[in-house]
Design a protein around this nucleic acid. Structure first.
Lengths: 292, 292
DNA sequence: AGCTCTTATGAATCATTGA
DNA sequence: GTCAATGATTCATAAGAGC
């Protein structure tokens, strides 16, 4: 089946109206964060943030399937030495719109920006808020089971070092068998804390989303041929990942420069889509080990 | 100077009135979480939680020094498939009492309770909310510095290898000085994500607090002879750690059984207090390495 | 292939300065 | 005063080169 990727240039508040009711399986987005400085991308003041976002979340509610999920990546800024409360106010207001606040994942940013301040430490985490329309929603937990990644690897490395010595006399008895034991205990369910480094590649957009993040949620909440929406597309990471994973997707972006950038990035992908096995085969499984 | 540890048996709402205004340097506590089942410890219903806590936080505001800090360990329960909102409502309400919500630390529980549910993963984090009375507060950041990762190690290794060559002719001039420079840069400031395993030892109390947690905040926000308060003492971890670190402390507990348990635990400590150097010398510095 | 070393870089804050 | 712009700051991590 052909995978479709649609891009809309414009304000989410308006563009979302073009999308059908109950047609989206997963919404995942990182909206412009509130900011004191008006000139940056978005530039919504903290005290206007809820008011600005509510019309959009209302449309998102309409277009999401009853079994779908909305993942919102956000973190409140420090304003005058205190954490802003607009995120909490947003959650409370969205519940009044009918959203269920199902879960809050933590994105632990392993390589947070350096710095020293007199009264706070480096901020190295962000919220990933999960909202749903109803208590029963689609979730494919097996898809995000993780190899005990580093654990298994380091155990194996240790083993090979210490056992190397012993093996001189033991002739490696049982060594192979032990390894196979570890390999069968290969996977475990993750928790609600995601450990990811921030991406360095997207220099053209301020909100650099590591690819592993949308990838993880797309695996968890959709299957092939489902439809993913990112109403604040930015550099298009979510759409590109969705496309690679054979999910249909819709992206909305208000800044023409970003819009065109993503258009360019998606062109070569369309070609690959004609050879689905090859494309999907290229999808890097190594990435999985990065999420613990 | 003699370190004092006071225990009060009773309801925090009442017992706190016995404490002087502006007399506490650090409040750190893990109050009974809201719970559907009334019979457990505390047993406050989620929708009554804010109402129940506000009179207490008001007293806490009164007894805390202007330069003091209040650390509140809390996490909302899942009620009917949805995260409760009482923590957010509490933060908003406490700000109206005059509290500044300065920061939110994440306690990542590395060994979270195992389990599998159809629509969520294991919950492996809790909130550590930092509140203050004013923007300027006491914070001793150097006390919680952590060994720097591999960087320092690899730099030192580099040095010793490359400089070894030079030293053959130079007779080690300045070599020692360089090393000492690097050794002082041995430690880095932590972030606002704490990686700690949950304690298993306190079987007698439902809220098992790892000792590293109060230890870290006591180091960060107090100095010797300061006064620490835990209005929901439970098994007394905070007080025992405070005592060991030569901080005065006050603990309040409503359940007689726990109160007496802590009394017992503190008796031998009082003896040691007559030999302060010995006692403090026993304080395990190795713990630091566990907090990253 | 595995190990070591190098290098680039990420949604940051705060105090200070100047308009 | 208020607001905006600027400089300084105790990093961790992955990817890539080199051996």
């Amino acid at each position: 089946m052909k995978i479709k990727t649609d891009l809309y240039l414009g304000d989410s508040k308006n563009e979302l109206k073009k999308i059908e009711d109950n047609s989206i399986d997963l919404i995942i987005t990182s909206p412009p964060y509130a900011d004191q400085r008006k000139k940056t991308y978005g530039g919504i003041l903290p005290d206007k943030y809820v008011e600005w976002f509510l019309p959009i979340s209302k449309e998102l509610f309409r277009v999401l399937k009853p079994t779908g999920t909305f993942i919102l990546n956000i973190k409140e800024k420090v304003v005058n030495g205190e954490r802003s409360t607009y995120v909490m106010e947003l959650i409370l207001a969205m519940r009044k719109q009918g959203w269920l606040w199902t879960e809050e994942f933590i994105w632990h940013k392993k390589n947070s920006y350096p710095g020293k301040w007199s009264n706070r430490f480096r901020d190295s985490w962000e919220r990933l808020l999960q909202f749903n329309k109803q208590h029963k929603f689609n979730m494919y937990q097996e898809e995000v089971m993780v190899p005990m990644g580093n654990w298994a690897k380091s155990r194996l490395r240790n083993l090979s070092e210490t056992d190397k010595i012993r093996d001189n006399s033991k002739v490696g008895s049982g060594f192979g068998k032990n390894i196979s034991n570890w390999l069968t205990r290969d996977k475990a369910y993750p928790t609600n804390v995601l450990h990811l480094a921030t991406e360095c590649s997207n220099k053209n957009h301020s909100a650099a989303f590591p690819e592993e993040l949308p990838e993880w949620f797309i695996k968890l909440f959709t299957k092939e041929n489902d439809k993913v929406l990112d109403p604040f597309m930015g550099s298009g990471t979510t759409l590109i990942v969705a496309n690679r994973m054979r999910r249909n997707s819709i992206g909305i972006e208000i800044v023409r420069e970003y819009y065109e950038l993503v258009e360019e990035k998606l062109k070569p992908l369309d070609v690959y889509l004609l050879e689905p096995e090859v494309k999907y085969g290229n999808f890097k499984p190594a990435r999985r080990s990065k999420i613990r």
